[in-house]
């Protein structure tokens, strides 16, 4: 068949048009399958959670079984503390390893770092919990927020490192050269030119890592452990929203189920707020070039 006859053939054209519509339909269907669970989770959580939400939920401690009311104030604060500790460990280590892999990636060590980062991102979070248990809980002889935060921090490292590396690689080489040609040292170039140019992408990566860490339950089970009392000392076991939700959801009490929904809603909302806040603080009027 010559090229001309292919173009003219009405039969072939019809077949191609059908194929085209089939493929487009498949794409749209796949898109829906992606969106539906998210929307469903969001609405269902809001619907079930918001009705149990009241001021007490944010200000009160959990009540003993049988007593109505109570809240998750300790778990909300606990989650914030755990994420902060996790961030303090995970973000600098992640960003710096990302910089190392991307900017100084010409030796054996950085290849090893890159390889290990990739593997670390595939380690189940409960294993990371066990690791934190081994290196912090056992020597300290007790569960603590520190161990929980440490586990979350380790969990954040690969995500942050990977995205930092990818974003830095997107920065054109010509900008590095422009800076160096002005007599700016290598580390200042990396910090003030390369990192700044990639900052919006890196912030997105950090937020993603925070959001993931905020929702993690498994690594906290035997590190932070949970606590029904008020506790802000990072040396001690501390409540966390996902833990509290988990405990309440598997309980046989309707009241606790309602509170678990409220907790889930607050957790989603919290992540959302952190997202907005960080974006607002780190906004740059010239960013978005990448």
């Amino acid at each position: 068949m010559t090229a001309e006859s292919v173009l003219k053939s009405p039969k072939n054209l019809k077949r191609r048009k059908i194929m085209n519509s089939v493929m487009i339909s498949l794409c749209i269907a796949a898109g829906f399958i992606t969106i539906v669970p998210l929307i469903y989770i969001f609405f269902y959580t809001t619907q079930s959670g918001i009705s149990s939400l009241n001021l007490d939920f944010f200000t009160q401690l959990p009540k003993p079984v049988g007593e109505e009311g109570g809240g998750m104030a300790n778990a909300i604060v606990g989650s914030l503390i755990l994420i902060t500790i996790g961030g303090i460990i995970g973000i600098p280590v992640g960003v710096l390893s990302g910089i190392y892999i991307s900017e100084y990636s010409k030796n054996v060590l950085s290849t090893i770092v890159k390889f290990i980062t990739d593997i670390l991102s595939g380690v189940p979070s409960i294993i990371i919990g066990i690791f934190a248990y081994g290196v912090i809980v056992i020597p300290m002889q007790r569960f603590s927020a520190l161990a929980g935060g440490f586990a979350l921090g380790i969990l954040m490292i690969p995500t942050v490192a990977k995205i930092t590396e990818e974003m830095l690689r997107l920065v054109p080489q010509s900008l590095r050269e422009a800076s160096l040609a002005l007599g700016v040292s290598r580390w200042k170039t990396t910090l003030r030119v390369v990192l700044t140019t990639a900052s919006s992408g890196i912030v997105t990566g950090i937020l993603l890592a925070i959001a993931r860490a905020a929702g993690e339950t498994a690594p906290l089970l035997f590190t932070s452990f949970g606590n029904v009392y008020w506790q802000t000392n990072i040396d001690e076991p501390m409540a966390a929203l996902p833990l509290q939700i988990f405990t309440y959801a598997i309980s046989p009490f309707d009241d606790w189920h309602r509170q678990a929904w409220a907790g889930a809603f607050v957790l989603i909302f919290l992540v959302f707020i952190v997202n907005l806040l960080v974006r607002f603080v780190t906004r740059n009027k010239f960013s978005g070039n990448l």
């Binding site: 010509s174 050269e177 422009a178 800076s179 040609a181 002005l182 007599g183 700016v184 030119v193 740059n284």
Partner: peptide
């Protein structure tokens, strides 16, 4: 490199900086 400056093939102003900041980038970064 402070003594020997360079202008590149493709214009490469720093995208995160203003016109003003670009001119003095070398001084400010130092």
């Amino acid at each position: 490199r402070k003594k020997v400056g360079m202008v590149f093939q493709k214009p490469n102003p720093f995208p995160t900086m203003s016109v003003y900041d670009n001119v003095i980038a070398g001084l400010k970064l130092n």
